[in-house]
Simulated assay, not measured.
Amino acid sequence: MKIALIGYGKMGKAIEKTAIERGHEIVLKIKRENLQDFNKENLSNADVAIEFTSPESALNNVVKSMEWGVPVVCGSTGWNNKLHIAKEKCLEVGSAFLQASNFSVGVNIFFEINKQLASIMNDWQEYDVKMEEVHHTEKKDSPSGTAITIAEQILENLKRKKHWIEGQPKSDDEISITAFREPNVPGTHVVKYVSAIDDIEIKHTAHSRDGFALGAVLAAEFVQHRKGIFTMSDVLMK
Rank of each mutant, 00 (worst) to 15 (best):
Met1Asp: 09
Leu5Val: 10
Gly7Gln: 01
Lys10Glu: 09
Ala14Cys: 08
Ala14Pro: 05
Ala14Leu: 08
Ala14Thr: 06
Glu16Asn: 04
Lys17Met: 05
Thr18Ile: 13
Ala19Ser: 11
Gly23Thr: 11
His24Leu: 07
Ile26Thr: 12
Ile26Pro: 12
Asn34Cys: 09
Leu35Asp: 02
Gln36Trp: 08
Asp37Phe: 12
Asp37His: 13
Phe38Leu: 14
Asn39Leu: 10
Lys40Trp: 05
Glu41His: 08
Glu41Ala: 12
Asn42Leu: 07
Asn42Met: 09
Ser44Phe: 09
Asn45Ile: 02
Asn45Met: 11
Ala46Glu: 06
Ala46Arg: 12
Asp47Tyr: 12
Asp47Cys: 07
Val48His: 13
Val48Met: 10
Phe52Val: 13
Ser54Cys: 05
Ser57Arg: 10
Ser57Gly: 02
Asn61Glu: 03
Lys64Ser: 12
Gly69Ile: 08
Val70Arg: 02
Pro71Asn: 07
Val72Phe: 03
Asn81His: 15
Leu83Gln: 07
Lys87Arg: 14
Lys89Gln: 09
Lys89Asn: 10
Leu91Cys: 05
Glu92Met: 10
Glu92Phe: 11
Ala96His: 07
Ala96Cys: 05
Phe97Leu: 15
Phe97Cys: 03
Gln99His: 15
Gln99Val: 04
Asn102Pro: 02
Ser104Thr: 10
Val105Ala: 02
Gly106His: 12
Gly106Val: 07
Ile109Gln: 12
Phe111Ile: 07
Glu112Ala: 14
Ile113Trp: 14
Asn114His: 02
Asn114Val: 12
Leu117His: 08
Ala118Gln: 05
Ile120Tyr: 13
Asp123Ala: 11
Asp123Arg: 11
Asp123Pro: 00
Trp124Asn: 07
Glu126Gln: 15
Val129His: 06
Val129Asp: 02
Val129Gln: 06
Val129Arg: 10
Lys130Glu: 15
Met131Asn: 02
Met131Tyr: 03
Glu133Ser: 10
Glu133Ala: 06
Glu138Met: 11
Ile148Pro: 00
Thr149Leu: 05
Ile150Glu: 00
Gln153Ser: 14
Ile154His: 09
Leu155Ala: 04
Leu155Asp: 04
Leu158Val: 11
Leu158Lys: 11
His163Gln: 10
His163Trp: 08
Ile165Cys: 01
Ile165Asn: 04
Gly167Tyr: 06
Pro169Ser: 13
Ser171Trp: 12
Asp172His: 08
Ser176His: 03
Ile177Gln: 04
Arg181Gln: 14
Val191Asp: 01
Val194Lys: 03
Val194Pro: 00
Glu201His: 06
Lys203Ser: 07
Lys203Glu: 12
Thr205Arg: 11
Ser208Ala: 06
Ser208Val: 04
Ala213Asp: 03
Leu214Gly: 00
Leu214Trp: 01
Leu214Gln: 11
Val217Phe: 08
Leu218Phe: 03
Phe222His: 01
Phe222Val: 01
Phe222Arg: 02
Val223Phe: 05
Gln224His: 14
His225Pro: 00
His225Val: 06
Lys227Pro: 03
Ile229Val: 14
Phe230Trp: 05
Thr231Leu: 07
Ser233Cys: 03
